[in-house]
Design a protein around this nucleic acid. Structure first.
Lengths: 340, 340
DNA sequence: TATCAAAATTTACGCGAGTAAAGTTTTTGT
DNA sequence: ACAAAAACTTTACTCGCGTAAATTTTGATA
């Protein structure tokens, strides 16, 4: 016998439909004996309430949207994995979306998300190229927590990493143990973190009494490894390195740089036989497997992902507070490996 | 003025509600003049039909589920990215889910998906550890296309890569240009492709008149790079290599192997100064950036992703045919890089 | 201009569950 | 054992839209 709706299921379980409805909303809100009767029937008839009918009249659904700029980037893969896990633990049903680096798709995703009436949305925006107006109007309708990339004033909160903490540690370490680093970055980064890292680099170098210098590579899009590799070839072949120590804006550029160094026979590392030291930021999941393994500043993935979800829970429970929009930045942890 | 439902929107656009409903179902199904009037009103009042109410009564929704074993694996990141794109082009609304390597989560995802009443589901199962009964009962309810990992007889079709094509090309190439390869793999792989690759290796070696040999590494879970690395350290330190040519079951293991070789100072490549040649299978997005860059057999990502979605379209349009369950396997393309 | 099929409108009902109000039963505390 | 509180049942209405049937309008063609 197939159960077609809650009415029928209530009948076979011997409980009234409104009580069954209450049970599915929160199993602990009904008497123990009724819960047992419902669960007995559940085991026998494997009924599940219609998802669409459920959410149509609910004031707040339990779905949440997780939106990232580029899911094929293992950094986002990792952070999404953790956030998803936390959401489930907090009783939400997360759905993941990727903007694929395209502002039009980001807008499209937010539009679709709006009609899902989610309890909240966790958004890592594209950054500079995002459609600000679209995001602003979305945040006005849906409780949104920004993470990874900040856009001033948007959403209920921002949770991210402290770029100054990242860069100050690498610059300090590299300067203390060898030649001060030159900064390897993209010329026109879409991500606001890149700009913050550049500024932190300049500030830190000046504080230590060194001259900042840059290798700026051209390229658009999200193929950072290839961009870093091509830029590195150019710099290596022109013998255009201001310093024998290179600090990359992020690990993906560094991966490209390391592959170029290997191809050109430039030995990277701390040893006396090495021509170059390379360090970077993010602790990308693959940075421990580069050759040599990459010295880098690590995100506190754990803290960021927990905090993002905790903030969402607070907002959905406490309502959108009048307090000033919080911005929480987590410090980095220097991971010393073989490249510097 | 805020539009609260289709009734109100129909009023301001001067069109009847059923016609508006038809428009949202398919904009081309209404007269051009009516479409223009609706779109004029749309521009002014930015109304969107309630997602939940829409799908409640539709026989077939336009949502599709994409389920993969582990989204933080860039191989799945890449294939999902392409499939998602194709789905959108075909007029579907894809949603992505990751099992995180856990059969319980895979079952949970399928359960949730069932209540979404999707037009179809594109499933890359975990493999050996999947809950077969759960998948079978799911496939009976929801049109499902399997990809990447086959489970005999389940779903409406299977689209994947031809493991024999992968392995025969690498084995042939390696044997022709140097010492025949030994096979580097996990002892208990969860993925059925791994077994097919092993068998293909044995078969091909015997055909060429060589003795198959193996390096089997221990490990559970999805941290293949680390597993490959630890296994490689063990083999290198014990000087336990049956051949100076190593063929890895997949690129992620190879990435771990290469990092171990680098750490131990074992030079990898074709040159006379190299102690080892390494090749692999998949053409993982990072395999061009390893040191040295990795010679590998490439998936036809394009063909697989298009074909998966095309198959879904056929099923949703033509209904579930009585014809035998098709299994489409795409051949690999050998990509020669520096490692072998 | 008459004709007629295609398209739009009107009317009406259904979906599956949320939810509120009023009445009934069960549990709890004393 | 009794009163009060808590949980449950009954009844009835809501939500926003899909969809079918019958009717009217539209616009292309003869």
């Amino acid at each position: 016998m197939k159960i077609r709706n809650m009415e029928e299921f209530a009948a076979v379980s011997g409980i009234s439909r409104p009580t069954v409805s209450k049970y599915f909303h929160d199993p602990d809100s009904v008497r123990v004996t009724t819960r047992q009767r419902i669960e007995a029937a559940l085991a026998e008839y494997d009924y599940r309430p219609n998802f669409y009918a459920m959410n149509q009249n609910r004031k707040l659904t339990k779905t949440t949207g997780i939106v990232v700029p580029y899911l094929a980037d293992p950094f986002f893969g990792e952070i999404v994995r953790r956030i998803e896990q936390r959401c489930i633990e907090a009783g939400f049903s997360p759905t993941v979306f990727s903007s694929h680096g395209d502002p039009a798709q980001e807008r499209e995703i937010l539009d679709n998300l709006r009609s899902l009436k989610p309890a909240g949305v966790l958004l890592a925006p594209l950054g500079r190229i995002s459609d600000r107006a679209a995001i602003e109007s979305f945040c006005a309708d849906v409780p949104t927590v920004l993470f990874d990339s900040n856009i001033e004033g948007m959403g209920e909160a921002f949770i991210g990493s402290d770029n100054y903490s990242f860069v100050s540690q690498t610059v300090e370490y590299l300067s203390r143990t060898g030649e001060p680093p030159t900064f390897f970055e993209m010329r026109n980064p879409a991500n606001p973190n890149a700009n913050k890292r550049r500024n932190a680099y300049i500030q830190m170098m000046e504080r230590l009494g060194h001259d900042p210098s840059f290798i700026r590579v051209d390229g658009e899009g999200w193929a950072f490894e290839e961009i870093g590799r091509q830029g590195a070839f150019k710099a290596l072949d022109a013998n255009d390195l201001p310093s024998s120590t290179v600090l990359c804006s992020n690990d993906r550029l560094a991966i490209g740089l390391l592959s170029a160094c290997y191809a050109r026979g430039v030995r990277v590392g701390r040893g006396v036989d090495c021509a170059l030291r390379v360090a970077s930021h993010d602790d990308h999941p693959f940075s421990r497997f580069t050759c040599p393994s990459l010295t880098t500043s690590a995100h506190d993935y754990e803290a960021v992902s927990s905090n993002v979800v905790d903030t969402l829970v607070q907002i959905t429970e406490g309502g959108r507070s009048a307090a000033p929009r919080p911005e929480r930045l987590f410090p980095a942890r220097l991971i010393m490996r073989d490249s510097a």
